[in-house]
Amino acid sequence: MSSVLQFVINGLLVGALFAATAVGFALIWGVVDIINLAHGEMLMLGGYVSYYTLVVVTGEAVASPALALATVPVAIVVVFVVGYLLQRLLVAQVLGTDAFLSLLVTFGLSIGLQQVALKLFSADTRRIAVEFADPSLTVGGFVVPKLKLVAFAGAIALTAALFLFLQRTRTGRSIRAVAQNPEAAALVGIDVAHTRAVTFGLASAIAAGAGAFIAMILAIQPQMGLIYTLKSFIIVVFGGIGSVPGALVGGLLLGTVEELVAGVVSSRWTLAVSFGLLIVLLIVKPDGLFGTGVRE
């Protein structure tokens, strides 16, 4: 039983990062009305921005917790700009056309970003080494790595910040208006193209923040993005398109299920179970838990 609880703890810790990644994926799907297959690459870029910010400033990828955390806002800002420009210059060109075309464009973008990253950063696995005097907490016999706890808190904070931004700010209300009815939003004076680009930028920025934390607790490499895009897809279908609370719950649940499967059965079954879960959800509850469902 204690092992099972340990797996649940592991799952919740990593699930928060899945949630922070998926929340942006859900936002783009809900507001810009495309499935962004390059979303995982935004996470990857965030990891590299964080890594190289540290290397440029200190000359090495080893940092105190405070210094490592200081690179997260840099990743968020840089990738926000990248996301904004990609939407304005590339993705906007195919909006309103065949849905298949937008899939192709974002898929091409995904491959292109991977190849650029390979050329710029090489295929070597990299990580930010964060120095703790004692790297783990032991609470009631359960091992909780301190850095994963920090990343968990950071991911929850990013998700909550996005939720509050959407609820409490004028730009957030514009984003929600465009998600509900872009024509009506345009009629009341909202710049729909700009709002969509801001949405794309915000979603990319949140993923980049998650990527920065992943660079600290796991590792980054140019071709890491696909698996996070796939996980985001599962989470969004589960939580509901455009729903921040749905993405949060979905992320935590997916992380827990994957770690339980890895711990109790075997790691080799995690993806199979995750996608099996996706199929069951599509049949049993196609609207998702919190969202407006998967539209045709």
């Binding site: 092992s3 592991n10 990593v14 796991l218 698996i227 890895a262 711990g263 075997s266 080799r268």
Partner: peptide, 20 residues
């Protein structure tokens, strides 16, 4: 005696088994 997928980037649960 555990196998894991190539795209796994987190071995913590499997390493936890080694510890336990």
């Amino acid at each position: 005696d555990e196998s894991f997928p190539t795209d796994t980037s987190d071995l913590s649960t499997n390493l936890g088994k080694v510890r336990d």
